[in-house]
């Protein structure tokens, strides 16, 4: 256990902080038979308490600011954050919106960025798998 526990059993929670729903659809697409992330033991869960990885989509809007922090804190350690999409990485096309606080990494620590608008499901799966490396390192340190 420990070290490799996360390699093939990764539970993912999806947080939409103000995305246009494009990235969200691509995340769901990764669950479909065509991509089938369950093959790698990746499972979408309904609550941050069960999650190992947070998939955050969209720029952080003002109302979502506190919620995003809260969801991050609710996730048990060790955890990793994967930002999906250009919006979450840089605020994207919404960079000068009055209602956008900033990209996700200005609110919570981010481990992996998956650029794209929206990224392809392959890229999202790759991003999640990259996050495993971080989790393993944390688990190793104990």
């Amino acid at each position: 256990m420990g070290l490799s526990s996360f390699k093939r059993a990764l539970w993912v929670f999806h947080v939409a902080t103000g995305s246009c729903n494009g990235c969200d659809i691509e995340i769901v697409a990764a669950l479909t038979p065509r991509y089938d992330v369950e093959r790698f033991g990746i499972k979408l869960v309904g609550t941050p308490r069960h999650a190992d990885v947070l998939l955050v989509t969209g720029p952080v809007t003002r109302p979502m600011l506190e919620r995003l922090k809260r969801v991050y804190e609710q996730t048990p350690d060790p955890k990793a954050v994967v930002v999906v999409g250009g919006c979450g990485s840089t605020s994207g096309v919404f960079y000068d919106s009055y209602n956008v606080v900033g990209p996700v990494d200005e609110v919570i620590p981010v481990d992996v960025y998956v650029p794209g608008c929206p990224p392809r499901p392959e890229a999202i799966v790759h991003g999640v798998v990259t996050a495993v490396a971080k989790l393993e390192k944390v688990a190793e340190r104990g």
Binding site: M1, S5, F6, R8
Partner: peptide, 18 residues
């Protein structure tokens, strides 16, 4: 689908979580 031993992997992972 997941490998047959997936429940064991899930269980092992849950045990190292906070």
């Amino acid at each position: 689908g997941p490998p047959l031993r997936q429940p064991f992997l899930d269980l092992g992972k849950l045990l190292v979580k906070e």
